[in-house]
Computed example of a mutant assay.
Amino acid sequence: MKVIIDTNALMIPVQFNVDIFEELRRLGYDIHLVPTAVINELNILIKNLKGSDRTAAKVARAMIDRCEIIQADGHADDVILNLATDLAASVLTNDIGLRKRLEKRDIPVICLRQKNRLEILP
C-alpha cells in the first residue's frame, strides 16, 4: 500500500524516537512517497530552525533517501491532498488542519498515537 509522508511526520523519529518506516511496514505500507513540496519545506526549516528542531529537519531530509520522490511543487498541504486523491494513497501526518481536509475527502490518515506508535485513524 502507498503512503505519502508529510514534513512533520518525517521529523517524528528524532522528536519521538519512533521508527516511522518500521511502523508503516507494521501497518501494511510498503511504498513511501514524498512530494518535492515536502523536500522544499524541509530545506526551509533547516535554514530557519535552531537546536533540536533543526536536527530533526536534517535527519528528516536524510531519510528521504528511503522514499520515492514525486515531482509536485506548491503548498505542501495542497500537493499532498491532491496526490493522495490521484494516487489513492494514505497520508502520514500530525498536522491537524491537513488531517481534517483529508478526512473530508475520505482519505486514510495515519498519525502518531501516545507518542510511541503510528495508527490509522478510523
Rank of each mutant, 00 (worst) to 15 (best):
55 T>P: 04
100 K>N: 15
17 N>V: 05
86 D>V: 12
88 A>N: 12
32 H>Y: 15
88 A>T: 11
117 R>T: 09
98 L>I: 08
10 L>F: 03
45 L>H: 11
81 L>I: 10
94 N>Q: 06
29 Y>I: 07
1 M>H: 09
6 D>F: 00
112 L>C: 08
5 I>A: 05
48 N>L: 08
36 T>P: 13
91 V>G: 01
116 N>T: 13
92 L>P: 06
47 K>W: 07
37 A>G: 04
122 P>L: 01
40 N>T: 15
110 I>L: 05
25 R>H: 04
6 D>G: 05
114 Q>L: 13
98 L>G: 06
87 L>G: 03
51 G>H: 09
30 D>R: 10
73 D>F: 14
72 A>K: 11
112 L>M: 05
52 S>I: 14
82 N>F: 07
8 N>S: 10
88 A>Q: 11
52 S>F: 12
97 G>S: 05
38 V>D: 06
32 H>Q: 07
36 T>N: 11
49 L>N: 09
47 K>E: 12
13 P>Y: 00
28 G>I: 03
96 I>N: 11
48 N>P: 02
115 K>P: 07
1 M>S: 14
109 V>T: 07
14 V>S: 10
27 L>Y: 01
100 K>H: 10
22 E>C: 09
63 M>D: 09
68 E>A: 10
44 I>C: 00
93 T>A: 06
77 D>K: 02
95 D>T: 05
1 M>G: 12
96 I>G: 07
12 I>C: 02
49 L>P: 06
59 V>L: 14
